[in-house]
Design a protein around this nucleic acid. Structure first.
Length: 201
DNA sequence: CTCCATGATTCTAA
DNA sequence: TTAGAATCATGGAG
């Protein structure tokens, strides 16, 4: 029997090393897959969803409805809201994302009635305070406000397409401009004055 | 139990 | 990257 040469040994070591690497790779891959499956099954946050506190939703809704014309809080505003609500910034982002889309859907269904009243009230405010060039006699204010109101009505009667949402936004904008407390009767939760923090017009 | 509200995720498009 | 839309999964009211 001839002795094993160092060269042969080295060659065998290389082969073993290659095999080992292959096995290692395979193991890594399958472990990774298993981890991903477990993660999606047990760490999916949807499985541990908790509703926010009443106060938190109150704060978020208050912000949303007082910024209806532009419900996109800046990063700082989100941080502020997150702090006040005791939730994370991403939760605030999630909340606004959900809120915007679901608000629009509600508009499409039945809530444009509320905006109609908002428009009506805004129009009354305009007429009352003479903040709009009146088309007719300067003194009389019986009819001029009817213009926007009838727009809203016709939008409703013509069967609410997505157009209704656009108008609703416009009206809400007017409404909040002339009467910020219209949409929601604010209940407590008074924050430090931050009424118009993030206007990015 | 079912049904709806709601928070989170995923996918697509701009 | 972000917003919007669709969808998922849970909580809670009935």
């Amino acid at each position: 029997m001839r002795p094993i040469t160092p060269k042969e040994i080295e060659r065998m070591v290389q082969i073993i090393h290659k095999k080992f690497s292959a096995i290692q790779m395979q193991l890594k891959q399958s472990t990774c897959e298993a981890v991903m499956i477990l993660r999606s099954r047990f760490l999916d946050a949807r499985r541990k969803r908790r509703n926010f506190s009443k106060q938190a939703t109150e704060i978020l809704n208050e912000y949303f409805y007082s910024h209806l014309s532009n419900p996109y809080p800046s990063e700082e505003a989100k941080e502020e809201l997150a702090r006040k609500c005791g939730i994370t910034v991403s939760q605030v982002s999630n909340w606004f994302g959900n809120k915007r889309i679901r608000y629009k859907k509600n508009i499409a269904k039945a809530q444009e009635e509320a905006n109609m009243y908002a428009a009506k009230k805004a129009a009354q405010g305009i007429a009352q305070y003479g903040m709009m060039p009146s088309p007719g006699v300067p003194g009389s204010m019986v009819s001029p406000s009817g213009e926007m109101y009838s727009m809203a009505v016709s939008a409703q009667q013509q069967g609410l397409h997505h157009m209704a949402a656009v108008q609703a936004n416009a009206f809400s904008d007017l409404a909040s401009a002339y009467n910020p407390n219209m949409m929601v009767s604010v209940t407590g939760a008074g924050y430090p004055s931050n009424p118009d923090a993030s206007r990015t017009d």
